[in-house]
């Protein structure tokens, strides 16, 4: 885990927890694998193995210019990414103003070890980032607990009505949104995953996503492939392969937590428009 010592959180903000730490572990493991030169197989080769065996996929930190975290909450993950990747620009987004303030405070508390190339954006998922806003690494930290759709929708409406405001009336809704994932716990995950895949820089980009077993990771991965094809069809281009695997896994209290890693595996060499696939 990156040495994040002063994390800010409070009313209505999800405190750094096992899932938060696991997301950082996944990134750190891949960076360490590059530094030590172990596990230097291609994403393609890694993807051909069983999907559910977790293993590192080396990541050269020098290749990472930009990182976005969706649902940055306390800011633990964004600040860790900024410390682990001092050359990169890191953006954290969250729909709760309280969470945004917490993210900013946590980034500021580590200003000396972060490069200062960071920002926080109050929004839902990645809405408001222009299409093609390029991110080499996307970290998705969604609410994943299965709930009813209504529970999720009501909290979302409350927060939208108040512009995400950090006022006492929105605390309950803001906190519900830190964990309520809707049906199968994936309603928010699917939206965030779709936005995240759109934001991936075309070549060599990767996305890390926290899931629990109830989210049905294999089904999510299948949906990700559909989204990926759609993104590239919109651009009139043949899609690079999207490989996925479990990067790290842990059992925490009653949850089986995993971080899924999605990697765009081909270099962007076909610039010409493709009319049929």
């Amino acid at each position: 885990m990156a040495s994040i010592s002063a994390t800010t959180y409070g009313e209505g903000v999800y405190p750094p927890s096992d899932d938060t730490f696991l997301l950082v572990d996944a990134l750190e493991q891949d960076l360490a694998a590059f530094s030590s030169g172990v596990g230097n197989e291609s994403a393609e080769a890694a993807a051909k193995k069983s999907k559910l065996i977790s293993s590192p996929l080396p990541l050269d930190g020098r290749d990472v210019a930009s990182v976005v975290e969706v649902g940055s909450g306390s800011g633990f993950v964004s600040a860790s990414a900024s410390v682990l990747l001092p050359g990169a620009y890191v953006v954290g987004t969250d729909l709760s103003q309280r969470a945004c303030l917490a993210t900013r405070a946590t980034l500021a508390a580590h200003a000396e070890s972060c490069s200062g190339r960071s920002d926080v954006l109050g929004t839902e998922s990645l809405l408001g980032l222009r299409p093609g806003a390029p991110f080499d690494v996307v970290l998705v930290n969604p609410p994943y607990v299965p709930t009813s759709s209504e529970e999720l929708r009501e909290s979302l409406s409350t927060l939208r009505e108040r512009g995400g405001a950090a006022v006492p009336e929105t605390e309950g809704a803001a906190f519900t949104l830190t964990w309520a994932g809707g049906l199968d716990g994936v309603e928010m995950t699917v939206a965030m995953l779709e936005a995240g895949l759109r934001a991936l820089a075309a070549a060599g980009g990767r996305l890390y996503l926290i899931v629990v077993q109830e989210n049905q990771p294999e089904e999510l991965a299948r949906r990700a492939q559909d989204v990926w094809r759609g993104v590239w069809a919109d651009r009139g281009r043949r899609p690079p392969r999207l490989a996925w695997a479990v990067a790290v896994q842990t059992r925490a209290s009653n949850e089986l937590l995993s971080v899924l890693r999605f990697v765009s595996t081909e270099l962007e060499e076909e610039e010409e428009a493709v009319t049929e696939f």
Binding site: Q97, D119, V120, L121, G122, T123, L127, R160, E161, G163
Partner: peptide, 15 residues
């Protein structure tokens, strides 16, 4: 933009 953070959250009728 408050405390350095732009807030792009939309109202329900803008989504």
């Amino acid at each position: 933009i408050v405390k350095g953070i732009p807030n792009l959250l939309l109202n329900e009728d803008e989504c």
